[in-house]
């Protein structure tokens, strides 16, 4: 299948009451099968950007288009958009009152009205793929952070989203668990999953990205292929930002 434009934003802007211009005219687009990594100092608006794409935040100005159709800021219909745009959070946010399997199959059954047996079969297959088959009847609090995050990824995947948003999914994890989660994401990228990833793991960003976006103060400062960005950053701000990461070994 030919790759095509799936999601784009034009002049996307967003302010909070106590913080102006969190996002300040963002022009962005992503093709199917593409992996875009967004990096930038904390508070640069990268998480807000993802939240806007998932309609968790209303936008003040600009346009978001999914499959060529404009997403209107009609929150009664937000669920229709979110069905196509999956999201994984930094804090996992599994549902504590449901087992791993029930966490995964809830939305496909209730939202997409799929058959329970089909969904369960798929859930088990996905769990096996991320190495958590034997945890399917466990409750979230019995899992480690890395395991929880892998379940959260499966929970988003089973909805068959057209695009997946990953919001600093390793930021809350102990270092030894980061790898097991990133491995899953790398695998997804190889299979052609369209993803927008916000991360602080520069090595991972380099390995997984087709394109890197550097965001600062609500604006896209630099946009480049990963090798180019990490080796020859053009802007002063990007250079400064990357310098703070220099001591970190790039090992993925």
């Amino acid at each position: 299948m030919e790759n095509h434009l799936i999601l784009e934003t034009q002049e996307l802007s967003k302010s909070y009451e106590n913080q102006k211009n969190v996002l300040n005219g963002i022009n962005f687009s992503i093709q199917t099968g593409e992996v875009v990594v967004i990096v930038g100092p904390s508070g640069c608006g990268k998480s807000t950007f993802l939240r806007c794409l998932n309609m968790l935040e209303p936008i003040d100005a600009g346009v978001i288009r999914l499959d060529g159709k404009e997403i209107h800021q009609d929150f009664k219909k937000a669920h229709l958009i979110r069905e196509k745009v999956g999201m994984v959070f930094q804090s996992y946010e599994l549902f504590p009152h449901r087992t791993v399997l029930d966490n995964i199959i809830l939305a496909p059954i209730k939202v997409q009205k799929r058959k329970k047996e089909d969904v369960t079969k798929e859930a088990v297959a996905l769990l096996t793929r991320v190495g958590l088959f034997e945890k399917k009847s466990a409750y979230p609090r019995q899992l480690s952070g890395g395991q929880k995050q892998r379940v959260a990824i499966v929970r988003a995947l089973i909805m068959h989203p057209e695009i997946l948003l990953l919001d600093e999914i390793t930021a809350a994890l102990d270092p030894e668990m980061v790898r097991e989660v990133l491995q899953v994401v790398l695998q997804l990228a190889k299979e052609g999953m369209t993803m927008i990833i916000v991360t602080h793991e520069m090595g991972f960003a380099k390995a997984v990205a087709d394109r890197v976006l550097f965001l600062d103060q609500g604006q896209v400062v630099e946009e480049a292929a990963p090798f180019e960005f990490f080796t020859y950053p053009k802007s002063e701000r990007a250079k400064q930002f990357l310098n703070t990461f220099h001591y970190e070994a790039i090992e993925i």
Binding site: N54, L56, A78, H79, L80, R82, E83, V85, G86, M87, F89, S91, E93, F95, P96, H97, L106, A107, K110, V111, Q112, A152, R155, A156, M159
Partner: peptide
């Protein structure tokens, strides 16, 4: 808030989030 957001992000409607996510936890 973010717990309910994660349910919203799975495409659930408000009524579904209340019924399947908020009330069971609140009740407990």
């Amino acid at each position: 808030k973010i717990q309910t957001e994660s349910a919203f992000s799975l495409g659930m409607k408000k009524s579904q989030v209340i019924r399947y996510i908020i009330l069971p936890q609140a009740f407990t």
